[in-house]
């Protein structure tokens, strides 16, 4: 097991809502990442992100680990939800926001416990 895979596992277990993307939410470096960020921001909860352009090891390893070849990738509660198309479609049909809100409130209750 490579150190990079350990890093990935740690990231997805420690961050309830995590977006692997190209660039940052303030300055996305790819149109698909920009769309994903826009949908996530529309849900009104804080989320973590990893800029894979700054992390070439993760960029190389995560597609294999996730069985998902492209970025962005949204992970909620340690599970891959999907890439740009799925995120945007779930946002538009109203499924994303409750999923995000539920994950976020469950995480903050855990923090307060």
């Amino acid at each position: 097991m490579s150190a990079t895979v350990d890093t990935i596992k740690q990231q997805i277990s420690e961050n309830t809502i995590l977006l692997y993307m190209k660039g940052t939410p303030q300055l996305p470096q790819c149109g698909f990442s920009a769309q994903a960020v826009q949908a996530l921001m529309g849900c009104g909860e804080r989320f973590a992100f990893v800029n894979i352009l700054d992390n070439p090891d993760i960029r190389a390893e995560l597609p294999k680990y996730a069985n998902w070849p492209t970025f962005p990738q949204l992970w909620i509660n340690g599970e891959l939800v999907g890439g740009c198309d799925i995120i945007v479609e779930m946002y538009q049909n109203g499924e994303l926001e409750p999923m995000i809100k539920q994950a976020s409130s469950a995480a903050s209750q855990e923090d307060n416990a």
Binding site: F32, W68, P69, T70, L80, G82, G83, D85, I86, M90
Partner: peptide, 27 residues
């Protein structure tokens, strides 16, 4: 689930995605 659907397509096109294809929007 959507993720599983996409993974089916990615599986079929793994060669293309590992090579020339850089982005694949799926509906």
């Amino acid at each position: 689930m959507p993720v599983k659907r996409h993974q089916q397509v990615y599986g079929l096109l793994s060669e293309e995605l590992a090579g020339p294809v850089h982005a694949l929007a799926l509906h």
